[in-house]
Simulated assay, not measured.
Amino acid sequence: MRVTYLEDLADTDRDVRVESENGNWRSRRIVLAREGVGFSFHETNIPAGTTNEFWYANHIECVYCVGGEGELLDRETGETYEIRDGMCYLLDKHDRHTVTAKTDLRLICTFNPPVTGREVHDENGVYPLLTEPDATTGNTTGNTTEEATA
């Protein structure tokens, strides 16, 4: 059994903050590839008044809103959806999407394949597909050995 308290992740390698032209958010990575469970699990906070563009070309992501209000734009279709507490969206087609936070958003996210925690969004909002030995088996997770860039 593994127990994690969110406050224990503050200022560790599992506490990722992004402030750039392409986004402004904080992600606390609760479960990563190194745990060897086949997915990663994160809490992501997006501040009110910000717009973030994402595209997970190498991952499937599921997002569940547990607080706040915003808007989700499917950049392929132009459709928009209200983000609010209790709303879930699944990016099962590697959908290019934009999240605009009307109020502070608190989102719970899962990724498959799991992220390692070293990924950095590129200019298109894409995470590279990285690998890492997991803590339980020593087997490599993911499909490539690309290195993340800072």
Rank of each mutant, 00 (worst) to 15 (best):
residue 55 W to F: 14
residue 68 G to P: 01
residue 6 L to G: 06
residue 68 G to N: 01
residue 77 T to N: 11
residue 82 E to T: 15
residue 131 T to V: 09
residue 128 P to Y: 10
residue 80 T to L: 12
residue 148 A to R: 04
residue 121 H to M: 13
residue 143 N to L: 08
residue 65 C to I: 06
residue 136 T to I: 13
residue 31 V to Q: 05
residue 30 I to K: 01
residue 49 G to D: 14
residue 124 N to R: 14
residue 52 N to C: 12
residue 30 I to A: 00
residue 137 T to W: 12
residue 86 G to Y: 05
residue 63 V to T: 15
residue 2 R to L: 10
residue 110 T to R: 06
residue 149 T to M: 09
residue 52 N to K: 09
residue 3 V to Y: 09
residue 61 E to T: 05
residue 46 I to Y: 00
residue 122 D to Y: 11
residue 31 V to H: 00
residue 65 C to L: 07
residue 57 A to T: 15
residue 140 T to Q: 14
residue 110 T to V: 04
residue 53 E to D: 15
residue 5 Y to F: 13
residue 142 G to I: 10
residue 72 L to G: 08
residue 31 V to W: 00
residue 122 D to P: 11
residue 107 L to Y: 08
residue 150 A to V: 10
residue 23 G to L: 09
residue 119 E to L: 09
residue 66 V to Q: 10
residue 67 G to P: 07
residue 80 T to M: 12
residue 43 E to W: 02
residue 75 R to E: 15
residue 96 R to I: 13
residue 145 T to Y: 14
residue 78 G to C: 01
residue 58 N to E: 07
residue 10 A to R: 05
residue 87 M to C: 08
residue 38 G to E: 00
residue 94 H to K: 15
residue 23 G to K: 03
residue 5 Y to S: 11
residue 11 D to Q: 02
residue 9 L to G: 04
residue 91 L to T: 06
residue 114 P to T: 15
residue 135 A to I: 13
residue 11 D to W: 03
residue 72 L to A: 09
residue 57 A to F: 14
residue 15 D to G: 00
residue 14 R to T: 00
residue 78 G to E: 04
residue 44 T to Y: 02
residue 7 E to D: 15
residue 115 V to T: 03
residue 1 M to T: 14
residue 108 I to Y: 11
